[in-house]
Design a protein around this nucleic acid. Structure first.
Lengths: 134, 134
DNA sequence: CTAGAAGTCTACTCAATTGGTAGGTTGGTG
DNA sequence: CACCAACCTACCAATTGAGTAGACTTCTAG
């Protein structure tokens, strides 16, 4: 399951998609409109900025805004960033891979099954972008 | 991600699949062969028994064994039992559904996307059984 | 019929993660 | 230069995940 943090991130992003290229948006505005705890949202947006998805402006008239075209930011990327691995097992994860101890990957039914699930999920999440959130 | 508990459950089940219709198997034997903490495994097997997947025999010569044909037990069922929801959001879960507050399900891009992911995953997990673990 | 083997139950611990809050600091803008 | 808004550090509480301890029941082989 996606964490609340991830759900908040997507809500905030969808809000910013609708304001794309309309200047900076206050954290407080997003928090209010999307009913997200303000200080929690601060952390999330900062993280998205550090990952290069958002950018911000300080001072009066400042706020957050999308750094790139929403159609160019994949949903899979956001999930990996905020929520972690998409795969159901570490030993089938592309970005968070860990070898499976006590289990021969070449000969493990579960392993194969989870690769299938991963691929099916990625097929969708790698082909959807922030634009599709709106 | 699947919890360790789930991974242990699948390891134990795959061991029992290979011993199907060969009489009861000791918890301690499974624990040793699959390198699972004994007392933790006890809880897991008990849970699988209560769900009707395993059955057990007490006393000397006792142990655990599959109650049903391994080809008749779906992987999806085991995951739901031991790990919880398969969907990435409560509002798209079939068995653990919860309404999404502050988000109109009829008009939510994330919602639609997650339904797709869920269906793609279920398509696999509902068509694989314990037999496929071996 | 009884000893011991084996599953069952209750309760606990410990660490990590999640979700959230408080308050001060920095830096840009009008 | 005043103020605004992002940024940073540090907490805190609740939950979950992972695992342990030990007593209790029940069954069956001999």
């Amino acid at each position: 399951m996606l964490s609340k943090k991830s759900q908040y991130a997507f809500k905030a992003l969808s809000y910013l998609v609708n304001k794309y290229e309309q200047g900076p948006v206050l954290i407080s505005e997003i928090a209010k409109k999307k009913k997200i705890p303000l200080k929690f949202l601060e952390n999330i947006l900062l993280e998205l900025k550090k990952a290069g998805i958002l950018d911000s402006k300080k001072g009066k008239g400042g706020g957050y805004f999308l750094k790139k075209d929403p159609a160019k930011v994949k949903v899979a990327q956001v999930i990996r960033l905020v929520n972690g691995p998409i795969a159901m097992l570490p030993c089938v994860s592309l970005y968070f891979y860990e070898r499976c101890k006590n289990c021969d990957e070449k000969n493990c039914g579960l392993h194969d099954m989870m690769i299938e699930v991963r691929d099916a999920s990625l097929h969708i999440l790698e082909n959807r972008t922030l634009k599709d959130l709106a």
